[in-house]
Amino acid sequence: MNRSRAAGRSTLASMVLLASVLLPQTAAAASAFSIERVAEGVYLHRGQQQDATAANGGDIANIGYIVGDRCVAVIDSGGTLAIGTALRDAIRRETAKPICYLIHTHVHPDHSFGDPAFADPATMFVAHAEYPAALAARRDGFLANLRYTLGAAADGSGSTVPTLLVQDRETVDLGNRCLSLQAWPTAHTNNDLTVFDERTKTLWTGDLLFVDRIPVVDGRATGWLKVMAALRALKPAHLVPGHGPVQHNVDAAFGPQQQYLDQLINSVGAALKAGTTLAQTVDTLGREPPQKAWLLFDDYHRRNLTAVYTELEWED
């Protein structure tokens, strides 16, 4: 574009600018909001492989939706109201079918603080049976963190109390499209829930699978290994992790995470056996280089060591 043409558009440009000032969140988010097709009727918005910052607007988790003949199920609502709204708008560009379910994979705020964008009496909010208690215990802290990170951009964000709780298994029908929901024993968190689309054999793992980004233990590492074995047995054709790119090979998808958790459990177990204190263990093992170049390793590895130490010290 040359200078004179640019100048000639100044009025239009300033109008656009004005609109973006009036609608800062939605306008900016919608234009940049990417959606990829995972399989027939299965759509994903990939979050960035980062911690929430003002720059990324808290858009760090994988979220998406599945379309049936009758209605749509949203899986996770994103880290803020703006992200949830952008996802809702993306769905509306694709289909006019109602959103009958918003399914939560777990309680963490990067996956659930966009809930208010889906507030609608016709939309059922679905989650693990342990989700409400975990939400109650953590919501204020999560919200304070989000406000600290995003400032006013966090306004209106937050998790909504689910209306349908899954104790073990549940099937929801979107119209010729059944989703199998399974609530798992404590693994990544104590409220992990997976979504399996029977039609395309797509498994939406939530944070039971991290790809490229370091897994975070906020539940039980030993429990997580068991759940991973059960997830592999489902033989999914496609896997949508909570963070990172879509996978099509189960072994390649779970391998690195399995190795990392095994190593955590073995090294911390050995430290406990040697009578090493928590502080010493985190200090010593926290200095060891990673076996794989995980993203955000320095931010979460020591935390994982702490979590696994306090888990294993009561195992015997």
Partner: peptide, 8 residues
């Protein structure tokens, strides 16, 4: 992030 003083 995920860190919260509540029990796991």
């Amino acid at each position: 992030g995920c860190s919260a003083p509540a029990g796991k």
